[in-house]
Amino acid sequence: MIRFDSVGMRYGSGEEVLKDISFDIDPGSFQFLTGPSGAGKTSLLRLLFMSLKPSRGLIKVFGKDSATLTNEELPGIRRRIGIVFQDFRLLDHLTLYENVALPLRVRGYEERSYRRDVIDLLKWVGLNERIDAFPPILSGGEKQRAAVARALIDQPELLLADEPTGNLDPNLARRLLRLFIELNRSGTSVVIATHDLNLMDQYDARRLVLNDGRLQIYA
């Protein structure tokens, strides 16, 4: 469903942060994207999500060349992808409930039609008591789970998560990983960027390892 072919990427006129990256992500697959801090994991996820353009090479997402995608086609593609940012990107002036429901709201659904799903999901990630809280008063772990819930609410075909367990204690991290695995079993492709070796040891999955901007793949 996703193909990178000799992709290179630089910020501005700096050095290439990603060099000659080629890989596929298949439907229904599960992979960790790993490597030391600063290796380019976040940059790679942003390329996948098309919030960055590659400096060279070809990226195909759901069969479409990202270079020729128009601004009108982009929302349709993004709706098939759920993303959890390292810095969460929750909106501080909306309640947790509204933040999680945001993807559905922007699709024009009635609040009544998704209320139940949102609340169920919030319960599932253990935030049911924080439904009407605003993000600034939440702990890092709570924000992280809210960000995950927002990425999952519209049942994406592909889930991208950037250090999703970075703010969680090992116990919660394990539960979140179980959630991702469960999601993957139901058909969603999952890419988890992490430098948490402990987390990766808990599940045997394909590893994409970034080092110095180059990619190695361990199946």
């Binding site: 002036h93 909306l94 309640t95 409930y97 509204e98 709201r105 609040e111 209320r115 139940r116 609340i119 169920d120 999901l121 319960k123 599932w124 990630v125 253990g126 049911n128 439904i131 009407d132 999952l152 049942q155 539960r175 179980r178 959630l179 469960e182 999601l183 079993r185 139901s186 969603t188």
Partner: peptide, 25 residues
């Protein structure tokens, strides 16, 4: 999405889920 109801992380509690939630702009 997996059937979330079957594998709750926390026990499901009753919350006022049919209450209208205020929509901020």
């Amino acid at each position: 999405m997996p059937d979330l109801e079957t594998k709750p992380i926390k026990p499901v509690e009753k919350t006022p889920e049919d209450a209208e939630h205020k929509q901020h702009s």
